[in-house]
Design a protein around this nucleic acid. Structure first.
Lengths: 191, 191
DNA sequence: GTCTATATAATGATAGAC
DNA sequence: GTCTATCATTATATAGAC
């Protein structure tokens, strides 16, 4: 039988998809094995501490993606703030497949989630908030306003994901993002 | 050894607390047994189909609470709309313990949640939305505006719960509710 | 680095005494 | 209606061949 193999990125992507869909407790090694095409013992070979290692690797992977594709571009002052915001919205829509896929930040925070994982997730959230707040300042918000606006935006993102998952209405997430886009442009045009 | 017993409501309340905290897959019969003080076989006696029965009973219980304490009062046109809204906010804060506790609507919707449970949860959400939209109409919103506002409100509720759980900042949920309160009063005063 | 096979522990569920 | 005791199944995890 030919040895299957799979590069680290594809593997992490597969693990990510199942963890974000099923949560930590809801995901079994068997499912991960089936989904990735790697036998259980192969998974343990790559992640000796088991599921714990796997989920940590996924969180680190997602964190890297977040910084590369969202936070980095947000902070890149070469581009106009309006463009950076709408670019972010496009990326966000892609990452969550227009609201059809969950956010790890929500899904890995149930029950007695490990503190180190919670800490990683929280740090990503804080980084994202900070980048958004900085954008707010650039378009003329005062610091308090920027803090509220950035927090509000991420609240809407998470809330919309929950609601869309609840109703199955595929337009929920997109509508919310569109609304936030409009509100942001309004703010830009009254400096 | 004296037979422990527990009335249905207290039992459901205990089951509810653990399911909302840990989700469906994250909750084990052993935990439910420990938490309720009933041995596993006693739980099976009351819920022959096991965890499935238990979670359905919890969802029905929560649904009844929602209609009794939130949706009913929202629809009671004897009271002024402003009072109904702020009463609802107080109830919501109590139900979620100021954001320290999760919402079943979020937590039971992961992975391959049973369709019948999803349907129950979705119906509760729709009922809540409808009651809010009606309130919106009463304070002068047009139908579309009322639909958007009610959906927005519940999006914020769910989002704020996720964010507070993520950051551990206990003021998140309260601040969001306070903000929604202000916004609602503003709308009331420009009819 | 992946596989087959197996060990060990936990989980959902049942039987039967009281 | 609750209990103790036990079963069957599934879960995590490991051993060792290739």
């Amino acid at each position: 039988m030919a040895q299957q193999t799979i590069d680290d990125n594809s593997l992490l992507e597969s693990l990510f998809e199942i963890f974000r869909n099923r949560g930590y407790e809801g995901t079994t090694i068997s499912q991960l094995s089936e989904m990735t095409g790697l036998k259980k013992s192969s998974l343990y070979h790559r992640f000796p501490a088991g599921k714990d290692d796997m989920v940590k690797a996924v969180v680190r992977y997602v964190s890297a993606q977040l910084h590369q594709h969202i936070i980095g571009p947000l902070l890149d002052s070469q581009e106009a703030p309006e463009k950076r915001f709408s670019d972010m919205l496009a990326t966000v829509k892609a990452i969550y497949s227009d609201g059809r896929k969950n956010c790890l930040l929500n899904v890995l925070n149930l029950g007695d989630a490990k503190d180190d994982i919670k800490a990683l997730l929280n740090r990503d959230y804080q980084d994202w908030i900070a980048a958004l707040a900085k954008l707010g300042l650039e378009v003329g918000m005062d610091p308090q306003e920027a803090a509220i606006w950035s927090g509000h935006f991420l609240t809407i993102v998470q809330g919309a994901l929950v609601i869309q998952r609840l109703t199955g209405d595929a337009s929920t997430f997109g509508n919310c993002m569109e609304y936030e886009q409009k509100q942001f442009l309004k703010r830009c045009n009254k400096p």
